[in-house]
């Protein structure tokens, strides 16, 4: 099967996130972007399916400072094609991103679209479900355990408390991946460098379409509660304080 994996680059949450002067968006000048972790799982799952059943994997991303690196990494891992979409602002909403992705998919042959189930910046909803709806193909969110059986796919959709529903579908279909069957593989830097010399990214410019239909009137950092009492001292002293707290509570 031919699989397309649309991915989002999102701000690295380990870094401190600053808000702009108008308090309507992040201060994007200093942001470091990285691949949305669920999209990393979607790429892994796509590669696993390709390795077991043949077909191809194409990865599609919107242009950011780090997009080239992320796409070359996907090629180094085994993707056959990588497409960079230009022409959209960095603060493009999920709706705008989905419409742009769908335009690009219109020129590609695919059976299955795999993407991360959600991303940290999905204020106006999840990219995958929006895309499926614009493409008029069925979608399932929070998916794991994808398998190919003949011309059908089987999969699990996760609910809370460890309960799952199983589904069967005849492509085309879009699946919002929760977790790949194994930890996303790692591409050695040397391999990524080599790919950068050998391969080229496809680049497609897209005209942005209207976005989410709502405006952000205020973005803020949530008020901090009383919070934890921070333990201080050397490692030994802190470990000692934790041990004392545990022993006291255990009684």
């Amino acid at each position: 099967m031919n699989i397309v994996v649309p991915i989002k680059l999102v701000p690295d949450l380990v870094e401190e996130l600053e808000i702009n002067d108008e308090a309507t968006d992040l201060e994007r000048d200093f942001l470091t972007y990285r691949i949305n972790e669920f999209d990393d799982h979607a790429i892994e799952e796509a590669l696993q399916l390709k390795e077991a059943h043949g077909g191809s994997v194409a990865v599609v991303a919107l242009e950011r400072e780090e997009t080239d690196k992320v796409l070359y990494t996907a090629l180094a891992k085994g993707a056959d094609k990588a497409v960079k979409i230009t022409g959209l602002d960095e603060d493009a909403s999920s709706h705008t991103a989905a419409k742009a992705m769908c335009k690009v998919l219109g020129d590609m042959e695919y059976d299955v679209v795999l993407t991360g189930v959600q991303a940290a910046d999905d204020r106006d909803g999840q990219l995958g479900v929006l895309m499926a709806s614009y493409l008029s193909i069925p979608h399932v969110s929070v998916v794991s355990d994808i398998a190919i059986a003949g011309d059908k796919l089987t999969l699990h959709k996760e609910y809370s408390g460890g309960v799952m529903a199983s589904f069967e579908v005849t492509p085309k279909v879009l699946l919002g991946v929760q977790a790949a069957r194994q930890t996303p593989r790692y591409a050695p830097v040397s391999r990524v460098r080599q790919i950068m010399k050998e391969a080229e990214l496809d680049e497609v410019e897209v005209e942005a379409e209207p976005g989410a239909g709502s405006i952000v009137r205020r973005m803020y950092t949530p008020e901090k509660g009383e919070g934890a009492e921070m333990l201080d001292g050397s490692t030994e002293e802190i470990a000692g304080k934790i041990a004392a707290l545990l022993n006291e509570k255990k009684g």
Binding site: H95, D124, V129, A132, S133, V142, Y159, G176, G213
Partner: peptide, 23 residues
Amino acid sequence: NTSMGMDLAAALSARRDLPLVAY
């Protein structure tokens, strides 16, 4: 905004062209 709701909210928004605010 659950596993089920995720499959409904964005679909409704896209197909009826309605604004959506998630989370």
